[in-house]
Simulated scan of single mutants.
Amino acid sequence: MAATKYMYLYGAGGHSKVITDILNSLDIEVIGMFDDNPPDAKFKGMEIRDGIRLLGLGFPELDAPLIISVGNNQRRAELAELITANYGTAIHGSAIISAKAKIGVGTVILQGAIVQAGAEVGAHVLVNTAASIDHDNSIGDYAHVSPHATLCGHVRVGAGTHIGAGAVVIPSIQIGRWCTVGAGAVVIRDVPDFATVVGNPAKVIKFREPPNLSIEK
């Protein structure tokens, strides 16, 4: 079936391959790509344009939606602050999304993920393969819920937080902004802003510096 829609991507790494695969499955063609450090190789015959240079000159107005295809949460946030665009979404057809859930612009939801009723997923979020976001969750902008992570009901996840692969968060937990929850961690207590937690039960092992973003000022 021929592509019926078009989209641009910012980011030419491995994450862009996954997003391109999702878009192609939805009959959406990637017609342009930008990157901070564009490789010499082309992407499906397309030249990858120098995003840093264009950001300095004033990012061009695009004739189709854009997705920031960058896996790093902070860089995704930085780019979203710099680029004014019509942002699209990429949601694989095998994902199960409740009609009563809300999904923000720029968000990517991979194969087999589940988002239940009453959940609100922010802008530029990555919900990775087979992640489960249960009812009435709130997922902040720029967060990443990694493969097979399980968030039970009424969980709140702050902006920019990374929930590691296979992590489990019990109901009604609040996880702060720009946190890291280690792979396989079991979170049974609230997590403060900027903390890294690991283990079962999850414990704080360090704090990070707040990112230099306007949303944090």
Score class of each variant (00 low, 15 high):
residue 109 I to G: 01
residue 21 D to I: 00
residue 53 R to Y: 09
residue 49 R to S: 13
residue 182 G to A: 00
residue 86 N to G: 11
residue 109 I to W: 01
residue 10 Y to R: 03
residue 51 G to P: 08
residue 100 K to A: 12
residue 153 G to V: 10
residue 20 T to R: 11
residue 135 H to I: 12
residue 100 K to S: 09
residue 140 G to C: 07
residue 72 N to H: 05
residue 182 G to W: 06
residue 73 N to A: 15
residue 128 N to C: 02
residue 35 D to A: 15
residue 128 N to F: 00
residue 9 L to W: 08
residue 96 I to N: 13
residue 41 A to N: 14
residue 115 V to E: 07
residue 86 N to R: 15
residue 117 A to H: 04
residue 81 E to T: 01
residue 166 G to P: 08
residue 48 I to T: 10
residue 163 I to L: 12
residue 20 T to F: 06
residue 163 I to R: 06
residue 137 N to M: 10
residue 195 A to N: 09
residue 143 A to E: 11
residue 106 G to H: 02
residue 209 E to C: 05
residue 88 G to P: 11
residue 93 G to L: 00
residue 98 S to M: 14
residue 207 F to Q: 12
residue 29 E to P: 12
residue 22 I to E: 07
residue 2 A to P: 15
residue 9 L to A: 09
residue 102 K to W: 01
residue 49 R to E: 14
residue 35 D to I: 05
residue 211 P to K: 10
residue 205 I to L: 14
residue 37 N to S: 12
residue 26 L to E: 01
residue 30 V to N: 07
residue 187 V to T: 06
residue 179 C to W: 10
residue 90 A to R: 09
residue 157 V to P: 02
residue 30 V to Y: 05
residue 114 I to Y: 08
residue 89 T to P: 07
residue 87 Y to Q: 04
residue 40 D to H: 05
residue 198 V to Y: 13
residue 206 K to E: 06
residue 26 L to K: 08
residue 188 I to N: 02
residue 10 Y to D: 04
residue 119 A to E: 14
residue 50 D to G: 11
residue 107 T to V: 06
residue 204 V to D: 05
residue 24 N to F: 03
residue 2 A to C: 09
residue 149 A to I: 03
residue 208 R to L: 02
residue 69 S to D: 07
residue 119 A to P: 09
residue 122 G to R: 09
residue 43 F to E: 04
residue 50 D to A: 09
residue 2 A to S: 15
residue 7 M to D: 07
residue 190 D to K: 08
residue 83 I to M: 01
residue 57 L to I: 11
residue 127 V to N: 14
residue 123 A to Y: 11
residue 71 G to R: 04
residue 188 I to M: 02
residue 115 V to N: 05
residue 99 A to M: 06
residue 39 P to I: 07
residue 181 V to R: 05
residue 8 Y to K: 03
residue 84 T to V: 15
residue 109 I to L: 02
residue 76 R to G: 08
residue 38 P to D: 04
residue 197 V to M: 09
residue 217 K to Q: 14
residue 130 A to C: 04
residue 135 H to L: 03
residue 184 G to Y: 03
residue 131 A to L: 03
residue 117 A to R: 10
residue 28 I to P: 12
residue 175 I to M: 05
residue 37 N to H: 14
residue 168 V to R: 10
residue 147 P to Y: 05
residue 206 K to I: 03
residue 213 L to W: 10
residue 5 K to Y: 06
residue 13 G to I: 03
residue 92 H to Y: 07
residue 66 L to N: 13
residue 85 A to Y: 02
residue 151 L to Q: 07
residue 113 A to L: 03
residue 150 T to D: 13
residue 59 F to A: 11
residue 158 G to N: 03
residue 145 V to Q: 09
residue 2 A to M: 15
residue 45 G to R: 12
residue 129 T to K: 11
residue 67 I to C: 10
residue 134 D to I: 08
residue 159 A to W: 04
residue 214 S to Q: 13
residue 35 D to H: 06
residue 136 D to W: 11
residue 198 V to I: 15
residue 40 D to C: 00
residue 185 A to E: 13
residue 182 G to Y: 00
residue 13 G to K: 08
